[in-house]
């Protein structure tokens, strides 16, 4: 594997996140971390922002990347780097919620009859509908949108695949309901 990475690097071919991380684990080269950051930072920040406020999202994202640097020796080469990164970030987010004694997982959102009402800006309606989703449903939806499969989402959240499947179904139904017929336009 290292030979193929070396050849790709020599030919300036694009390396996958896993290959970049594999090389970063060995060398600690900051340039490799920069490439990983550029590939994943926006996705991670968006995930965190969807589940917290901008200040906390920035703080947790920064801590997650620092943890990538510190714990890089714990990264397994056969795993997806992005899933590992999101797992680190989610754990930090949960720790932070525990620290400030807020329990977003227990916060209930009454989804019945809370249509945001489409008023011309469907994107705004989508953002509002997403914000009204319960934490776990929102999380499952966002992670699926980030390209993770059921198995990955279950691993990141620590829940069963059946639970994830159920959350995804509820989340999408709610979003469609909130957006109504306008989402078809």
């Amino acid at each position: 594997m290292s030979l193929s990475i070396a050849i790709k690097s020599f030919l300036h071919l694009e390396l996958s996140n896993e290959e970049l991380m594999g090389r970063y684990v060995q060398s600690g080269d900051a340039a490799l971390l920069a490439r990983l950051y550029d590939n994943c930072a926006n996705d991670l920040y968006h995930y965190l922002l969807t589940h917290s406020d901008p200040e906390m999202a920035g703080e947790i994202a920064q801590r997650a990347w620092l943890r990538v640097m510190e714990k890089r020796h714990l990264y397994h080469s056969n795993g997806q780097f992005k899933a590992w990164l999101f797992t680190l970030a989610r754990n930090l987010l949960m720790d932070e919620y525990r620290r400030i004694k807020r329990q977003p997982l227990m916060e209930s959102t009454d989804l019945t009859g809370t249509s945001t009402g489409y008023q011309g800006d469907i994107q705004l309606a989508f953002n509002q509908a997403l914000a009204t989703l319960p934490f776990l449903q929102r999380e499952a939806f966002v992670l699926q949108q980030e390209g993770f499969g059921l198995q990955d989402i279950a691993a990141i959240t620590g829940d069963s695949q059946e639970a994830i499947k159920s959350r995804l179904r509820y989340a999408k139904n709610h979003l469609r309901q909130q957006l109504g017929d306008h989402s078809e336009e």
């Binding site: 926006n42 989508f126 390209g147 059921l150 198995q151 995804l168 179904r169 999408k172 078809e184």
Partner: peptide
């Protein structure tokens, strides 16, 4: 392994999500 997902993706939701991102 995203093929394992039985919940179908909604193209309109995907587009809205990507635009938000």
């Amino acid at each position: 392994n995203s093929l394992e997902i039985t919940v179908k993706n909604d193209p309109s939701l995907d587009a809205l999500y990507n635009k938000r991102k």
